[in-house]
Write a protein that binds this DNA or RNA. Structure first.
Lengths: 224, 224
DNA sequence: GTTGACGGAAATGTTAGCAATCATGTAAGC
DNA sequence: GCTTACATGATTGCTAACATTTCCGTCAAC
């Protein structure tokens, strides 16, 4: 995940640990059910157990790991039902975020970041590197979640993570689906920039639902 | 501080610290903006800085405290706009939770806890002790959030807390409003028990919106 | 009088080490 | 042969101490 992040120095140890572990989980290098043993991670990351422990608690709040008292942390095992539930929730949360973003644009004008995002999406060609596309997708969703003013929406979103995210995206995102996704993004951004909150919310909900239904069509046995 | 909690022993120190601090914040004994100094809390609670630190991080995820790097934790300062945003979000989240609960009842029958909750609500008289009413209200919302099956809804709700909750309730909940609230609860529970997910969601959203509008009518200067 | 730098105190970030708890494998008993 | 009791190892929970950063008051200089 921090392929292009800052050099490890300059950030706090706990944050480094959190990003590193989070990246490993979302890239499926740490698979569901895998135990995350504190001393082991500490040795791997070259720091003490304190920051690792803190990072694991943080990831637990985000839903990426599950912690049991006196038993330690395990990478969360997301059943099909849980994936559905998370996306049911994301549809509401991201829909509301888009609505709030549009409202804010209507009231205070459009921040440059949204215009830039729209240009990026329109210019993007679906044949790019999938990893780049995945990163850009995440950044866009974060941007819209933050564009509404408060940070309740963004915070809520970060608590709705799923493990193996990137692997799942590789499975469902054919070039055709990337094109559809791009069109969704453009529609959402246009509605937000136009300040049309109803259309913005609807567009975002449609987009999230599309992703959810792609995930739902994954073959049996993909989820534990 | 932990008025009717379990005897402090038997639970982990970090959890004790979290409940104690959380209770103090929601009861306005720690007011918005107040610094929460780790060594001080540790001394107060009779334990080391480790568990206190962990508790503060947890409360930060719940929105009750705000942590800045190298600066420490302060009780969150919820502006009027932030309260509105949180309740906008809660309306969606709790509405979905009620819908999921109703769906589950329709599929698998009604758990006894819901029937008991309905009996309790119907039997409750609005003249009870306000603290009891507040606690019962929280328990009911938690129950419905948990009744949908997965725990994504419940987890999401716990991340949408506000400081000074009890004080605000004391301000807005006149006997008349408690009666209305009770009627809302009964309506939600009846819809859930009947397995009518549309009505359940609508009833819950109406209920949350009522609370939000009561909070919105608080006099100027109530929020920072 | 105001601004700036400097120094000390306090709080946070981090590490290392000890105590308590849980899992595992082994051996004894039925 | 299967179950149960037990001992050992490993891991988590917690505390205490160290390092680093920030904040605040003081003092000098302009």
């Amino acid at each position: 995940m921090e392929s292009k992040e800052q050099p490890p120095e300059g950030r706090a140890a706990a944050e480094r640990a959190a990003s590193a572990i989070s990246a490993a989980i979302r890239d499926s290098r740490f698979g569901p059910g895998q135990r995350l043993v504190e001393p082991e991670l500490a040795r791997l990351l070259g720091l003490g157990r304190g920051p690792v422990r803190e990072a694991l608690r943080l990831l637990s709040a985000q839903g990426l790991v599950t912690i049991e008292r006196n038993k330690g942390a395990v990478v969360s095992r997301a059943s099909r039902a849980m994936v559905a539930e998370v996306f049911e929730m994301r549809e509401l949360v991201e829909g509301l975020a888009a609505r709030r973003a549009a409202r804010r644009v209507a009231e205070r004008g459009c921040p440059a970041a949204l215009l830039a995002a729209l240009r990026d999406e329109e210019a993007r060609c679906a044949e790019s590197d999938p990893l780049t596309l995945i990163d850009a997708n995440e950044r866009l969703h974060q941007l819209i979640a933050s564009a509404g003013g408060g940070d309740v929406a963004r915070r809520t979103l970060t608590h709705l993570q799923l493990p193996e995210l990137r692997t799942r995206f590789f499975q469902i995102m054919s070039p055709r689906n990337w094109r559809l996704s791009r069109e969704d993004h453009v529609a959402v951004l246009r509605a937000v920039i136009a300040g049309d909150h109803d259309r913005a919310e609807q567009a975002m909900r449609t987009h999230v639902r599309r992703t959810a239904s792609l995930l739902a069509e994954l073959p049996e046995g993909t989820f534990p």
